[in-house]
Computed example of a mutant assay.
Amino acid sequence: MNEAQLGPIPKRSLRDDAYHGLRRAIVSGALQPGAQLTEPQLARQFQISRSPIREALHRLEQEGFVVRRPNGRIFVAPLDAQELEQLYAVRAVNEGLAASLAAPSITDDDLAAMEHHVEEMRRLAAEGDVDGSLQAGQAFHDVILERSGNAPLVEIVRGLRLRISRFRTMIAAGRDQGSRAAEHREILEALRSGNPVHARCATERHIHQSAASVLNRLGDASGIAAEDRAAGADQG
């Protein structure tokens, strides 16, 4: 692990700051899957004591960002295709439900906000700001979640998104942004019609298409990594 990737953090809430700093490094790819994490090294890099690091690692383990081996060693969790497929399947069901709940009560202000987010997705993608386009897409879905009026459902979906965020770089690279914006437009029009079934179906279809794209990207990355390992073995 390159110590230049991490730095000191302000002493506000050390446990939370350590958690967010580590999660950000994992999601961005600064900490690669399989990288070993040790409390002394992280404490030295963040310039804090080991206690908040230990608590941050425990939280990240609960959320699936890191794994603890039987010998107690901690590693950044691998990008697992089966896990991703399962996460997207659960997300599709729950966000589809949120859309069906939101459809009858969607407001003109909601629709205007979602229209804005779709246009932002297009604009940012055209400018090459794929991460910004992804954030605009999330804001689009946030409108639906809030309008669903179901607080436990909102909590479930946000937890799923958090776990899926580990695959963010592949989500960004693996999708045609024009198609992605068109799928959001389809959801928007289904909500505009006020039809819960259409809203659910459009949302589930979009999420399944996203899953297929990212899984393909993950498979390609795994194949390239395997080829690299084989080439290294041949050279050795």
Score class of each variant (00 low, 15 high):
Ala136Lys: 03
His58Ser: 12
Leu42Ser: 12
Asn2Cys: 03
His58Ile: 09
Arg69Lys: 14
Tyr88Ser: 05
Arg91Ile: 00
Ile144Phe: 01
Leu97Pro: 02
Leu162Asn: 08
Arg180Met: 02
Gln235Arg: 15
Ala56Thr: 08
Ser179Asp: 12
Arg147Thr: 14
Arg123Leu: 12
Gln5Ile: 14
Asp176His: 04
Phe140His: 03
Leu153Gly: 11
Ile9Gly: 07
Glu146Met: 08
Ala56Arg: 09
Ala103Gly: 06
Leu111Val: 09
Leu162Gln: 05
Ala92His: 03
Asp129Thr: 03
Gln209Lys: 12
Arg23Cys: 08
Ala18Pro: 11
Leu162Trp: 00
Gln82Asp: 15
Asp129Trp: 08
Ser49Leu: 01
Ala136Arg: 02
Gln32Phe: 06
Gly34Asn: 03
Arg200Pro: 04
Asp234Tyr: 12
Asp220Pro: 00
Leu42Arg: 13
Arg91Gly: 00
Ala125Gly: 09
Arg205Val: 05
Leu97Ile: 07
Leu6Val: 07
Ser148Ala: 13
Thr38Lys: 07
Glu39Ile: 15
Gly149Gln: 10
Val197Thr: 13
Glu85His: 10
Pro196Cys: 06
Arg69Phe: 10
His116Ser: 06
Met114Val: 04
Gly21Met: 06
Gly64Arg: 00
Ala112Ser: 11
Ala56Tyr: 11
Asn195Val: 13
Ile26Met: 08
Arg158Asp: 06
Leu57Val: 04
Val197Tyr: 07
Ile207Glu: 10
Ala4Cys: 05
Asp108Cys: 01
Gln62Trp: 00
Arg54Asp: 06
Arg59Lys: 14
Arg54Phe: 07
Gln235Met: 15
Ala190Phe: 08
His58Met: 06
Gly29Met: 05
Gln5Tyr: 14
Glu186Trp: 02
Val214Tyr: 01
His198Lys: 14
Asn94Asp: 03
Leu79Ala: 02
Asn2Gly: 08
Asp17Ala: 13
Met170Lys: 11
Leu215Ser: 01
Val130Asp: 00
Pro52Gly: 04
Ile53Leu: 03
Ala43Asn: 09
Arg166Lys: 13
Pro104Lys: 10
Gly178Tyr: 05
Val154Thr: 12
Gly64Thr: 02
Ala212Asp: 12
Val214Lys: 06
Ala211Val: 00
Arg69Glu: 15
Asp142Phe: 10
Val130Gly: 02
Glu55Asn: 11
Leu97Ala: 09
Asp109Glu: 13
Glu55Arg: 15
Asn2Thr: 11
Ala139Met: 10
Arg54Glu: 07
Ser179Trp: 07
Ser51Asn: 04
Cys201Asn: 14
